[in-house]
Design a protein around this nucleic acid. Structure first.
Length: 420
RNA sequence: GAGCCUGUAGCUCAGUAGGUUAGAGUGCCAGGUUGUGGCCCUGGAGGUCGUGGGUUCGAUCCCCAUCAGGCUCCCCA
């Protein structure tokens, strides 16, 4: 391995052209989906104020307590955003978007940062796309949000997914449920895994999605949140399910589904894939009716989701889904001699104006070397220019696919590319 | 943050029970074809064997540390 003096930080990767082409493809699918649902794009800064994230996401969450890239500069506390919802909520409050009438439907695509130990499907800089509907408490908003998320995967052909949904209720029903869980687990403390023991006090709901073997039998018998939901919460949950049924979106009710962020209320959902290994979540989200008030805005109900782009790529890879075509080159101008090189530089713009991609040699290499490069770049046509061509005003126009060539004037070559 | 595994050319990998010039395929460059790619033939460049330290007469190989990657836990996208 050649030792580069400088490399990317742990858990951060470069995306080279071949790979970037796939990213562009899925980004196009996401943007097209956003357009069809009529969500507007929002681009927020990568740096936010640390207290916004701490308060919005929750001091006790893993994200805030141990995964933030944060630093201070003078009085200001900066943090690389670990997720997209709190920043969007901040922008909603800052720009008084509630004054615009109706609900705000926003989507985003961008990098997020969490200082976790990297592994497959988990980078320290990773990318999410997500969408938020702000200002609606209607279960239809929940359904549309889920539909948006699911549509992206369907469009790409990722169909072997599982959509889990649950309701985590409003704060009062959640409080009652937490107590019920504590009462249930307390007598069995000694049988719980160490991690779960520590959670019994702080966040008993987290015990439910423990993967520790020893916890499983107890979890099986633990009380279910649905039994502790208020009438209003149950009604909302029922309406969301009804809407999903109407949309033909298959889901799996998962009473033990608990999300790791504090701001969720009522609807919680997660889309997972068996093709991802240990990190099997493609995306997830839910309703967060208290977040905007929590960060200083007017009480505003909202719902949203976030999905991981890297995991989307992994799923596509596993399923053998082709993401667009490798970049091809329309025209390579092969040159011999300084006059020919000047000619190529001068005439390339005319071809480019017609929408063609055009490249040429910048190193004064042999014709053979240039042809080889043209071949490597999947070139459709080569224009070969040398002294004789320049004298006669006719150029060798080679079809690289069919290996045929004719002599043509430059205007005739241009005509070949004009429609009809 | 914890456990296990891995780290030899750009890429995919051989290899040495520690011993002198470290190999293959592929890719790259050039020649065979003095102006023409994809096939074929020939040649060439490219590695301080991840990095640092230790043991040893001698380390790519053994030991320790460190960095990076993989799998799992934790958690999440």
């Amino acid at each position: 391995m050649a030792q580069a003096q400088f490399t990317t930080h742990h858990g951060m990767v470069d995306i080279l052209p071949e790979e970037a082409q796939k990213w562009q493809f899925i980004e196009t699918v996401i943007r097209e989906t956003a357009r069809s649902f009529h969500f507007g794009e929002i681009r927020t800064p990568v740096l936010e104020q640390t207290p916004l994230i701490a308060r919005g996401v929750g001091e006790l969450t893993d994200i805030v307590s141990k995964e933030m890239f944060a630093f201070n500069r003078g009085e200001d506390q900066y943090v690389l955003r670990p997720e997209g919802t709190a920043p969007v909520a901040r922008a909603f409050v800052q720009h008084r978007l509630e004054q615009r009438g109706g609900v705000q439907k926003l989507f985003y695509i961008g990098p997020m940062f969490r200082a976790e130990r990297p592994q497959k499907g988990r980078q320290r800089q990773f990318h999410q796309f997500g969408a938020e509907i702000l200002g609606s408490a209607d279960p239809m908003a929940d359904a549309e949000t889920i539909a948006f998320m699911v549509t992206v995967y369907q469009k790409l052909g990722i169909t072997n997914t599982v959509l889990k949904i649950n309701s985590v209720g409003d704060p009062s029903s959640r409080k009652a449920y937490k107590e019920a869980l504590q009462n249930f687990f307390q007598p069995h403390v000694c049988h719980l895994s160490p991690i779960s023991k520590t959670r019994l006090e702080s966040n008993p709901m987290r015990i439910l999605d423990s993967k520790e073997e020893e916890d499983q039998p107890l979890i099986e018998d633990a009380p279910v949140i649905t039994d502790y939901l208020s009438d209003a919460a149950l009604e909302h949950y029922a309406a969301v399910k009804m809407h999903l049924d109407n949309l033909g979106i298959v889901y799996q009710e998962t009473p033990r589904l608990v999300r790791g962020l504090d701001y969720y209320t009522q609807t919680a959902f997660e889309l997972s894939s068996p093709d991802l290994g240990a990190q099997d979540a493609l995306g997830g989200g839910g309703r967060y009716d208290l977040l905007i008030e929590e960060i200083g805005g007017q009480p505003t109900p909202a719902v949203g989701f976030a999905s991981g782009m890297e995991r989307l790529l992994i799923a596509c890879e596993a399923l053998g889904i082709q993401l667009g075509e490798p970049a091809a080159l329309d025209v390579y101008i092969v040159t011999r001699g300084e006059a020919a090189r000047a000619w190529a530089l001068k005439h390339a713009p005319e071809l480019r104006k017609m929408g063609l991609s055009v490249s040429m040699d910048y190193a004064g290499r042999s014709i053979k070397a240039q042809m080889k490069e043209a071949n490597r770049e999947n070139t459709r046509y080569a224009i070969i220019v040398g002294d004789t061509e320049l004298e006669n005003g006719e150029f060798t126009f080679r079809n690289m696919v069919e290996s045929s060539e004719t002599m043509l004037r430059f205007d005739e070559i241009c005509n070949r590319f004009r429609p009809l």
